[in-house]
């Protein structure tokens, strides 16, 4: 049985280790980022979103391809949890249809591209 992949964010005296399939989204907050996991916890880490994007790509290798998407400058989302997109209202809902439910906002262009991506290449 394949072991679950983890994303490790380590800096200074702190280390955050999250199972890739439990990572719902990462949101930019200036030079910091909020890492949001399936249990609804939101943890601020001192990494820029671009650095986290690099780390996800490096640490997950082939396993990551197609699972995570960078949306503009502000978001990284796990495609497994994309539940609802409303381009007109600039609304993106991430949910596991169980206990996890997050309403996010993104630009119309980004949501339109995400919608097309999922229509053409559903995960």
């Amino acid at each position: 049985m394949e072991q679950p992949k983890h994303i490790v964010l380590s800096r200074g005296t702190e280390l955050l280790r999250v199972r890739a399939d439990r990572l719902v989204y990462v949101e930019s907050e200036g030079n910091y980022s909020h890492v949001v996991t399936l249990d609804g916890r939101k943890r601020l880490v001192s990494f820029q979103l671009g650095q986290i994007e690099d780390l996800i790509g490096d640490q997950l290798g082939d396993a990551v391809e197609g699972r995570f998407l960078r949306l503009g400058r502000g978001l990284i989302v796990n495609l497994d949890y994309v539940y609802f997109i409303d381009v007109a209202r600039q609304q993106l809902v991430l949910s596991d249809c169980a206990g996890c439910y997050h309403e996010l906002s993104a630009s119309r262009e980004v949501l339109q591209k995400l919608k097309l991506y999922l229509e053409n290449d559903p995960v």
Binding site: G57, R70, E109
Partner: peptide, 28 residues
Amino acid sequence: MIRFDDIQDNEIRVIGQRDGHPHSQGDG
């Protein structure tokens, strides 16, 4: 390590893509 600093607010990108360019879905 590839650094991804060139993404714009209206772009999306598949993480882990080999060429590292923004995904251009829908813009032809």
